[in-house]
């Protein structure tokens, strides 16, 4: 790729745009790459792909069910479809197509789900996506990945080339996502990455919560508390080994996600630990309520998705010793 080097500039700290830039690279690498849009050309930054690979681009319009069904049909012919969509709509509106046509039929369809969580905060609860991880994680055959930043989003998108089955890639919206991962430590599906060492408590985070976890760890370190931070971008398959090691070595686990507390990262970790190594936990995420309307960061903070809340959770576990 002649111009792939500039992808970081064009991704502009947003995972949704890094996904689009990675598609440009995949388009060049594999002639079977085909991009399916649901009127989401700018949302996922796919205009460069469209310009370059016009014949491998399909606009489906605002029809998510059709986009998934068509992608599944394309996959049966040997093409490698990437569906570009809004997380709240592709996970809920077309869930039956995802379950039957993609997961059950085990077709290699990759869903790039942008505007996840409460990144569309001002749009209101109809446009928040706070249950998609629970839904997608419950399907057999499905791989579920939540990149924390553009480096990881780009690498994870490229990595889908080698995943033999459907993938749900949860991406952010028009919000800044600070870089927290080390580009030199490559993304591997099913592998969680330790971003901060520490044996007092472990914070397991995904997506936008990872940078807050790093900030929390740095703040706690000044107070003499060593909080391990693990970026669990691979929700499914889960990195059992890394998570169990954290539970054994720190004895205190805090999970943090921009998702309902039901069924997401915290749920996945709790399912693992309750069976394999019961461990005291605190879970940061959206409680059982529809979120308020408002700017993303303010709404997150209202429901405890903030560095301050993560720190409180760590201290609670430490005080309970």
């Amino acid at each position: 790729m002649s111009d792939s080097g500039n992808w970081r500039e064009r991704a502009a700290t947003q995972t949704r745009l890094a996904f689009g830039q990675a598609l440009l690279e995949l388009g060049a690498r594999d002639p079977r790459t085909v991009v399916v849009s649901a009127d989401t050309q700018d949302l996922l930054g796919i205009r460069p792909f469209i310009e370059r690979f016009r014949e491998r681009f399909i606009e489906m319009g605002i029809a998510e069910q059709n986009a998934i069904g068509v992608a599944a049909g394309l996959a049966t012919t040997g093409m490698r479809p990437y569906v570009c969509a809004y997380a709240p709509f592709i996970s809920a509106r077309s869930m039956e197509q995802v379950r039957n046509d993609v997961a059950y039929a085990r077709q290699r369809v990759v869903i790039g789900a942008a505007a996840s969580g409460i990144s569309l905060g001002v749009a209101g609860g109809t446009h928040h996506s706070l249950e998609d991880l629970a839904l997608m994680r419950s399907f057999p055959n499905m791989t579920v990945i939540v990149p924390a930043d553009i480096e990881e989003a780009y690498q994870a998108t490229l990595a889908t080339q080698d995943i033999d089955g459907p993938v749900y890639l949860r991406l952010g919206g028009r919000v800044e996502e600070p870089t927290v991962t080390d580009p030199a430590v490559p993304f591997r599906c099913g592998k969680a990455r330790v971003l901060r060492p520490g044996n007092d408590v472990a914070i397991l985070a995904c997506g936008a919560m990872v940078s807050l976890a790093v900030q929390t760890s740095d703040d706690l370190r000044a107070a003499g508390i060593d909080a391990r931070v693990i970026n669990v971008s691979s929700i499914k398959p889960l990195d059992r080994e890394t998570i169990l090691a954290a539970a054994v070595e720190t004895r205190r686990i805090v999970t943090a996600e921009e998702h309902h507390l039901t069924g997401g990262l915290g749920g996945a970790v709790a399912e693992l630990l309750s069976v394999e190594h019961p461990t005291r936990m605190r879970m940061i995420g959206m409680p059982d309520a529809f979120a308020s309307i408002g700017p993303t960061v303010k709404v997150r903070e209202k429901y405890g998705m903030s560095a301050a809340a993560i720190e409180r959770a760590c201290r609670e576990l430490l005080d309970a010793r």
């Binding site: 399909i58 059709n66 068509v70 599944a72 049909g73 996959a75 049966t76 012919t77 093409m79 059950y104």
Partner: peptide
């Protein structure tokens, strides 16, 4: 060719197959 029976899925799938034929 495909797991069907949940109604309203087949035409989209077939459309994808037809597009795949054209592309290849």
């Amino acid at each position: 060719e495909m797991c069907t029976g949940a109604l309203g899925h087949g035409l989209a799938i077939a459309t994808g197959m037809a597009l795949g034929a054209r592309m290849q």
